[in-house]
């Protein structure tokens, strides 16, 4: 079989966290952290995943990696459903899928020297023969811009940017195909962010890596991604190629989100779409379209019926009734303003 173009396919993935209460700790409800999302990432490409705090971006990343067990849906990596794999098979595939976390301070063990941090899993998975181990680690560190004499130092001696390089080196040492980058630059200063973003891009070019790049910084996502998915309260509301989605956002949420990006130019006066209200709780999401409580285009249908995830234009997916008006009756098209939106 020829190698398929698509490296990762996520189909209707769900992750609900049970809410336990009472003496017997029975389940009284769920946090619908990820509530049925689908997307594909092609080999060697980067998909940006954006959305506001708590919308389920990290949960998506962790569920893909099986750091969390899914509730429902499929994660197909290189033709195999990760959830069907046995423990042993999973262990063998693990090095190929890596993750880099947001917080470079807490994700490194303070008691191990840098060389060991990077090399631990290399040894465990037998990536290189023992006699080549040292050279290999040196090479990986060099690629990530870390001088080899750092090997014997401890994480607390490094700045945030250097620690993030160590995290990236640790992931890269296992020669992965796919890396989930969960807000890798959010904790860093602007001038250091650029160093890390450039490094990630260079590694992608040199080693053909595929990234899922999670971030709430839209300008960074635009810079690094080939495609972008926008999440709201556990659902994907829009997905398209980067240029397309920034030039032509369809979903009312995406439009508001993009218009809120601060632009570093005092002369640019953007027409901000100021969204009313706040983000509802994912444990008790609004009925119908989850965005309807804050949407200025909200119609009667939106308050009761969830919009379908559909391909509005080739390659441009969106979940919003506005792009499926033919399916609605005239009554369903009536404007409907939710109470919360009226408030603010």
């Amino acid at each position: 079989m020829a190698e398929s173009e698509v490296l990762l396919e996520v189909k209707d993935l769900k992750k609900w966290f049970p809410i336990k209460a009472g003496f017997f700790k029975h389940t009284v409800g769920y946090v619908y952290a990820v509530d049925g999302i689908s997307f594909q990432i092609k080999r060697g490409q980067t998909m940006g995943l954006v959305g506001e705090s708590g919308c389920g971006k990290s949960t998506t990343g962790r569920t893909i990696l099986r750091l969390l067990e899914r509730t429902d849906g499929q994660v197909i990596f290189d033709g195999q459903d990760l959830n069907d794999l046995s423990k042993e098979e999973l262990r063998r595939i693990r090095p190929r899928i890596q993750i880099v976390f947001q917080d470079p301070y807490s994700s490194l063990s303070p008691r191990l020297p840098v060389g060991e941090i990077i090399g631990e899993a290399v040894r465990e998975h037998g990536i290189v023969p023992e006699e080549e181990f040292d050279d290999y680690i040196t090479r990986v560190m060099e690629v990530c811009g870390l001088p080899p004499y750092y090997k014997d130092r401890y994480p607390h001696e490094f700045s945030g940017g250097q620690r993030q390089r160590i995290c990236i080196a640790r992931a890269l040492a296992l020669s992965p195909d796919f890396i989930v980058c969960d807000e890798p630059v959010s904790a860093l200063d602007v001038s250091i962010q650029a160093q890390i973003i450039n490094l990630l891009k260079k590694l992608q070019k040199d080693y053909g890596l595929t990234y899922l790049f999670i971030s709430h910084d839209l300008s960074v996502v635009e810079h690094i991604s080939d495609t972008v998915g926008v999440m709201y309260l556990g659902n994907m509301v829009e997905f398209a190629e980067t240029d397309e989605i920034f030039a032509n956002p369809l979903h009312p949420y995406t439009k508001a989100l993009f218009s809120a990006i601060p632009v570093p130019d005092p002369d640019v006066k953007i027409d901000r779409v100021i969204l009313p209200g706040s983000i509802p709780s994912p444990a008790n999401p609004p009925k119908g379209c989850k965005f309807h409580t804050r949407c200025e285009k909200c119609m009667a249908a939106c308050t009761v019926k969830a919009p379908e995830w559909q391909e509005v234009e080739p390659g441009h997916w969106c979940a919003c009734h506005l792009y499926n008006m033919d399916a609605l009756t005239p009554e369903e098209k009536e404007p409907a303003m939710s109470d919360e939106a009226k408030d603010t």
Binding site: E52, H216, L257, A260, I261, P262, R272, I274
Partner: peptide
């Protein structure tokens, strides 16, 4: 704060 909330507050 989130971007959309940030826009509200700055405004």
């Amino acid at each position: 704060l989130d971007v959309t909330i940030q826009a509200q507050i700055l405004d």
